[in-house]
């Protein structure tokens, strides 16, 4: 077992665990959006940043991928952590204004408004890539993937056409943290998600 502290509280974790896994095991809250137990962590949303400190030295790491180590001191509620969280939430509120899931999560962490204007009032997807990762890693089909890069990055099937590689298993729908897959689904499969939900119910 590995011994270390989170917020000055002594905790134990098994070798190979991440800070996030250890924290959740001990009931210590860290927000996440792109994390799901079913797939390998990808460290994309950066909401789970925590601060490591050792004397005067400190740095921020993504707790979903940082492996626990003997004697480290982890802090989940420092000023720097809050600064990263607040800005990500403010930007998410403006990027995905139509996602009640994101608004609710932001509100839980005290962010209820944003200084930024929304570009697309209907948008819900923040391209965390959970859907494509579950399709690749769990289903094994890779029917969808993240395409393009930078600000244009999005989720889709090749050439933005419905693909018959998709078997409509619905895994992507179930892992999507923002509800975005509901509307994306029919463009991938050619079947509206509402029908899909009825079929699998």
């Amino acid at each position: 077992m590995i011994q270390f502290t989170i917020n000055d509280q002594q905790v134990e974790a098994q070798h190979g665990w991440t800070i996030l896994e250890a924290a959740r095991e001990h009931g210590i809250d860290i927000p996440t959006l792109c994390y799901h137990e079913a797939v390998a962590p990808s460290g994309a949303c950066r909401l789970c940043m925590v601060e490591l400190k050792d004397g005067n030295w400190s740095k921020l790491v993504a707790s979903c991928i940082y492996p626990v180590a003997e004697g480290i001191h982890v802090y989940t509620e420092t000023e720097r952590v809050h600064n990263v969280r607040r800005w990500i939430f403010e930007m998410l509120l403006a990027t995905c204004p139509a996602s009640p899931e994101i608004s609710a999560l932001a509100e839980r962490y005290g962010v209820t408004s944003t200084r930024f204007s929304a570009a697309d009032p209907d948008r819900t997807c923040m391209v965390c890539g959970l859907c494509s990762r579950v399709c690749e890693e769990v289903v094994g089909l890779s029917a969808i993937a993240t395409v393009d890069r930078g600000v244009y990055k999005r989720v889709g099937a090749p050439f933005s056409r419905p693909t018959d590689v998709c078997v409509a298993c619905g895994c992507c729908l179930s892992v999507c943290p923002t509800g975005a897959m509901q509307s994306l689904f029919d463009t991938v499969r050619g079947i509206p998600a509402t029908i899909m939900t009825q079929l699998t119910a």
């Binding site: 990500i88 930007m91 890539g129 393009d148 890069r149 930078g150 600000v151 990055k153």
Partner: peptide, 20 residues
């Protein structure tokens, strides 16, 4: 903004907001 891979939110969203 053009060259970011777009994977993590601080970079993908943050650079655009700074540029704006």
């Amino acid at each position: 903004e053009e060259e970011s891979c777009g994977k993590c939110l601080p970079c993908r969203l943050g650079l655009t907001r700074m540029r704006e």
